[in-house]
Design a protein around this nucleic acid. Structure first.
Lengths: 198, 198
DNA sequence: CGGGATGTTGACCGCGCGGTCCAAAACTCG
DNA sequence: CGAGTTTTGGACCGCGCGGTCAACATCCCG
């Protein structure tokens, strides 16, 4: 019976995500979102609700995609420890520095909004807990593979690794040069991953 | 000759700082700033220029105060390593969690603004470099005092410690409970500060 | 092919934004 | 005390914000 949608929701979510990622929540106007999505006001409001609801939808999908990506990288990594290293280096691996300057949408949003938006704060907690679980799994595998001291508490190391990664992401946003950022990641990892007794 | 100011610039800067810290840059209106400062529009604009200039002034004074504080803590710490530990635990040391949720004005501002405001990005780099230097000094002292492996590269450890601290601050903003946050700090420090051979 | 339901477009709304400006006030000094 | 200078408070401005809505287009199905 109804008239069908003329746009693909996922395309819109991705375009809108990039806008929020680039400008932040408050500095992105609905007009910006209409521009990047190519939709009219009625369509965008009809499909996603107001600005905040749209943002929360975008944030959640961003996080889910991120978690899926991490699980895939763990699944396809030759060794558990490789995935952990990749995770921390990530933003520093783009030699142009663009990825580092962009940072992470969740981290940016939490810094901007978490104080006054409980939904954003809750989403951040959910996401970081899930990441910690994945890292723990990766580290347990690394212990079995002989790359990490089997006596270490994998969950504890995972939390420290997460903190280090968040630090690298935060530093990346300052525009610090990529080589230096890579050094930070390398230096943190060298100390956070206790090597097994030889 | 002239009519004297009726307000104290430093008081105003502090009040305005708290407003920006609480709401973020974009979400804080000039009316908010007039309210918290108690000034009229003419006075605020006359003394500090527009919103962005006022913000940059506030941010720089915040950073300077922060650096002064760190240097003082290093000067008065019984041991170099104590200052490093305090630095990382800091926001988690408020048992109410308020400090953790508030986070750091510089970190929040960098996450919100660094992409499009080169002055904010530059200020962040300046500040983080200065912090790294102070941490390096603290760690060198810790090495002399036998609390940190003297073979470690103090500057490298300092960068890793900074990353960990930024991670703790980022996690703190999610509203994660303080005990867990303290554990993250503890766990990171335990691994980042290589103990000297006994 | 027509009726009903949904999607689309863009005009429109009121508000609050950042910023300007000026008349009155408050001071110093000759 | 009066002249000169700066500060003060708030009226005022135009704009762009987020959000609503109604007229029209497009489709499915009987």
């Amino acid at each position: 019976m109804p008239r069908p949608r003329e746009f693909d929701e996922e395309h819109v979510v991705l375009a809108v995500r990039d806008a929020f990622w680039d400008r932040g929540y408050a500095a992105t106007s609905m007009d910006d979102l209409l521009r990047v999505s190519g939709l009219g006001k009625g369509s965008l409001y009809g499909a996603f609700g107001d600005k905040r609801r749209l943002f929360l939808r975008v944030l959640r999908e961003y996080d889910d995609a991120n978690l899926r990506g991490l699980r895939e990288r763990l699944g396809s990594a030759a060794r558990g420890v490789d995935m952990v290293r990749e995770f921390v280096h990530d933003v520093a691996d783009d030699p142009t520095g663009a990825a580092a300057r962009r940072g992470c949408l969740l981290a940016n949003s939490t810094a901007e909004l978490a104080t006054h938006d409980p939904d954003v704060a809750a989403e951040a907690r959910r996401s970081y807990e899930a990441i910690t679980a994945i890292l723990t799994e990766a580290l347990e595998r690394a212990q079995r593979e002989g790359d990490v001291d089997p006596d270490a508490d994998a969950a504890e190391v995972a939390r420290a690794v997460l903190a280090a990664q968040l630090g690298v992401v935060a530093l990346g946003r300052t525009g610090m040069d990529v080589a230096a950022l890579t050094e930070v990641a390398r230096s943190a990892l060298a100390r956070l991953l206790p090597a097994p007794a030889p």
